[in-house]
């Protein structure tokens, strides 16, 4: 057998991008289960549809770009984008909404920037933001938690956007929306006046806890470091806590902020996206803190139901700048105190 010439190292951990991606996909399962439990089959239908679309668009555009299809299709990155979109979109999204979101994510946000690893923005968030701006009504239709549709009804809604028996009874604004639109009342007052909201809050809390679990699993498998999610949650909690202390009537508490909306999904599955985030650990801290503050600001003063898409895209935009200023000090560059002669 001829001997070959290769550069060291000749050993490898055998970790693979596809394995990392598979772990991420698996880690979304608790959240997916919770979301389906509270909001019905919508998310599941969405997920299958989005995955199908994402793989299809990925293959198509890889073909058009003249790249090998199978290695990229099997790396799982398209599926991760699809999962994130499906989980972030409302369970009541119709087929075309998902189609728009996924196609824009894969084609524009990912491949037009050079494909996997070269996209400056998180593709899923770009698709999500596009839909949020273009179809605000469709994007805010969250199912009321007290009524779950049968699979058949959901299926019908998914394709026709109407359900025999009328849909309006089933949809409601999100907890965050209600919170924003009922300023002046304390949350407990709102909750007592609106049983739907109370239920919504509970559902939202459980979904968030499920995502938190999945995120901790990923952290345990060292898929990412703790810096970005912890920084994000801490800064969001800090801001919320501070304002809540000042004006408890106007601002919900830290725990409300942390356990509603897409907080945990974003913290562990989107803020941790390495491609579009900051590079160094210090950078990741800054990135996370930035996202947390922006989320708080947009949630409190903006007019969109949730703030993550915009907060993350804004921080994606600043990632190169953060990288420039958070270069870690390499070995031997630390300024150490001069050596004392009489060391032990």
């Amino acid at each position: 057998m001829g001997l070959i010439n290769l550069s060291s190292p000749h050993h490898h951990s055998l970790s693979q991008t596809s394995r990392l991606m598979a772990l991420v996909l698996l880690a979304t399962l608790p959240g997916l289960a919770a979301q389906s439990y509270f909001y019905g089959y919508g998310t599941l239908i969405n997920l299958v549809w989005a995955s199908f679309l994402a793989l299809g668009f990925e293959a198509l555009i890889l073909y058009l770009r003249g790249r090998p299809i199978m290695p990229y299709l099997t790396d799982g990155s398209a599926l991760v984008t699809a999962f994130l979109l499906a989980l972030a979109l409302p369970p009541f999204s119709p087929w075309w909404l998902t189609l728009v979101a996924v196609s824009f994510s894969i084609i524009f946000a990912k491949h037009l920037y050079g494909g996997l690893g070269s996209n400056p923005f998180n593709p899923a968030m770009v698709g999500y933001a596009l839909c949020l701006i273009s179809f605000p009504v469709a994007m805010t239709q969250w199912a009321g938690t007290e009524m779950t549709m049968t699979f058949g009804q959901q299926w019908q809604w998914f394709w026709l956007e109407s359900v025999t028996g009328g849909i309006d009874a089933y949809t409601s604004a999100t907890a965050l929306d209600i919170m924003r639109h009922t300023k002046g009342l304390t949350l407990s007052e709102v909750a007592s006046s609106n049983p739907q909201l109370a239920l919504g809050l509970t559902a939202s809390m459980w979904v968030n806890i499920a995502y938190l679990l999945g995120g901790l699993v990923l952290l345990g498998f060292k898929v990412f470091t703790w810096h970005a999610p912890v920084a994000m949650l801490a800064s969001l909690g800090f801001c919320a806590g501070l304002f809540h202390m000042g004006e408890p009537d106007l601002y919900p508490s830290a725990s409300q902020h942390l356990l509603t909306g897409a907080t945990m999904l974003s913290a562990f599955f989107i803020v941790t996206d390495p491609v579009s985030g900051a590079t160094s650990r210090k950078g990741k801290l800054v990135f996370g803190i930035g996202v947390g503050i922006l989320v708080f600001i947009i949630r409190s003063y903006g007019s969109y139901p949730d703030a993550f898409a915009f907060a993350i895209l804004l921080m994606n935009l600043s990632a190169p700048l953060i990288d420039t200023y958070t270069k870690p000090k390499a070995y031997g560059h630390q300024s150490k105190a001069p050596r004392s002669q009489g060391r032990p």
Binding site: H12, P71, G117, P274, T279, S280
Partner: peptide
């Protein structure tokens, strides 16, 4: 030994940075 495989795109996962004993930014 390490499989002689084609390499994929860098996804900037940062595992290299965590591993680097010289505290560099290998992905950069």
């Amino acid at each position: 030994l390490a499989p002689i495989a084609d390499h994929h795109s860098c996804i900037r996962c940062g595992l290299c940075e965590v591993a680097c004993p010289a505290q560099l930014l290998p992905q950069q």
